[in-house]
Design a protein around this nucleic acid. Sequence first.
RNA 1: GCCGACGUAGCUCAACGGCAGAGCAGCUGAUUUGUAAUCAGCAGGUUACCAGUUCAAAUCUGGUCGUCGGCUCCA
Length: 615
Amino acid sequence: MPQIKVKLEKGEEHSYPAGISLLDICRELEACRDGAVVAAEVNGKERDLNSTLRHDSEVAFLDFSSEKGARIYRHSSSHVLAQAVKRLYPRARLGIGPAIDQGFYYDFEFTEPLSAGDLEKIEAEMERIVAERLPFKRREVSREEALALFRGKGEPYKCELIAELPDDEVISLYEQGDFIDLCAGPHLPDTGRIGAVKLTGLAGAYWRGDERNPMLQRIYGTSFPTPELLAQHLELLAEAAKRDHRKLGRDLDLFSLHEEAPGFPFFHHNGMVIIEELLSFWREEHRRAGYEEIRTPLIMNRRLWEQSGHWDHFRENMYFTRIDEEDYAVKPMNCPGAMLVYRSRMHSYRDLPRRIAELGLVHRHELSGTLHGLLRVRSFTQDDAHLFMTPEQIEPEVAGVIDMVDYFYRVFGFKYRVELSTRPDRAMGGVEMWNRAEAILERVLREKGLSYRINAGDGAFYGPKIDFHLEDCLGRSWQCSTIQLDFQMPEKFDLTYIGADGQKHRPVVIHRVIYGAIERFLALLIEQYAGAFPAWLAPQQAAIIPVTDRQHAYAAEVSSALRSASHRVYVDDRSEKVGYKIREAQLKKIPYMLIVGEREAADGKVAVRHREAGD
RNA sequence: GCCGACGUAGCUCAACGGCAGAGCAGCUGAUUUGUAAUCAGCAGGUUACCAGUUCAAAUCUGGUCGUCGGCUCCA
């Protein structure tokens, strides 16, 4: 029998008879001792453990702890979900079922809509399938065979996918027991490797993410090699929920949301203290970076919005009102106001770039279903700025803004992800102009050495943009900073500057925000610090805690001394025990507790206790 | 907007056709306390809102509003 050489990830080389399965190698090496090995990479390509080796190969085993391994594991779990659903609801049609960050989902079209209570039944069926230890079998077929198979099974969505596969694509099927699915793989050797499954949610999702398509029902789930790991994961989620900004916002009296104004947040004193500190820091840094600050009206007439293009491109998101029988709109963006300010006088090329900032309150009529605490609201303050410049100044200006974003995020300890969003379907201006603008942004990103991902078609209607995304406590990603290049507004508003040649020229505009929206940024900040703000942001910086009533006068002295030095402090002079007051200050996450008893009052000192991490 | 779930005291929850209840928070009083909860008392509600079924609705049904998890959209 011919031998094949197998090189393993650690550099060892072994010889095996041709036709040996990866699973056998894996077993021989005891590599799957906890059942955690899920697949293998053969010569850099992911393969099922069930597949056999016919050539000399380099093999790396993937286990659940790796990102790739977890994805394969969850993907197999989604097939088990689909199998369970087909067993219980034979007439349900299959959509798609990929692995996602912390689990998987599968989309179905049911004859009768599923309700949340049905998930338990499906979960039980999944457990049965896991217990059956059904092997995943791969089979490659022609397009015709695949189409005939899924047409016969009454699966129109699968047929649509098959029809659209490129010609050179290998079409493969995966079969486990009584279930067969179109899938590129790879998969686990058998369903028995899935230790613990949990269905986590039921949601609607448009077929292929397009709202013109029918809405399917999406079942979310997660799975782990062992019940212990699943329990650990659920525990982690429960912990994360404790830092949810909606809960902390209420507990720490930062803000509130009311039925009377859905999507329009109410900020309380404590929240305002944090916002004001964020804004002071922002103003200081912007002055340093050569920005000016303006303020423009909330309401401007219809003609302005027609001129800016918002009337055509953004109308369904805007609020309107009538004044003296004329249509007015509440601003959804700050740009038109800034354009008018720029246009109010002549500009020389010597004065450019002009960096004109505005903390602008904008209102957008977002769909009711999208509202989410402070993270997605209908009125928010953008820390906006419009940079007016000559074409030559674009690259250094974009680079300057990127540096500023990076600096701000480092101050707060945020990790961010960068995206380049390109021309949308409903874009203003020619393709050529867009390509040029996109190329410029891409060049600066590369020069900065930032890794980024292209978000095709997600640009603003007037230009492409670089977006910076932050994550909330549950790992959901939110766009904050954005840098948008705009050749359109200057045209629409006929903006000019006088060049060295004495002639009028067209400036370029960059729209940019650093925090993005103060509301959203505050929400992420609350979750980032779990409510325990650093002293410079904390609504109350110190609690002064007298031990008995006899120290009240001294406590008041300490308090007024600190207050006159602009510190935010308060005296807890209730007739409670010290331990009680400390506990309360800790729960309010106050950075410092200044305890004053007989000893301290005599010495003119305080005993300092620092806030403990967590609670 | 669409799909699914949920709205009971300020908060967390109980009662699941038969008198709306607890803990915490709040208020009053006592206590004068040394590093995470002193004790006692009081008050707090048209059970989101509007209809309907019923002798009787927080509970069952329909609608509206809001919230939560997603989809689409976006800072």
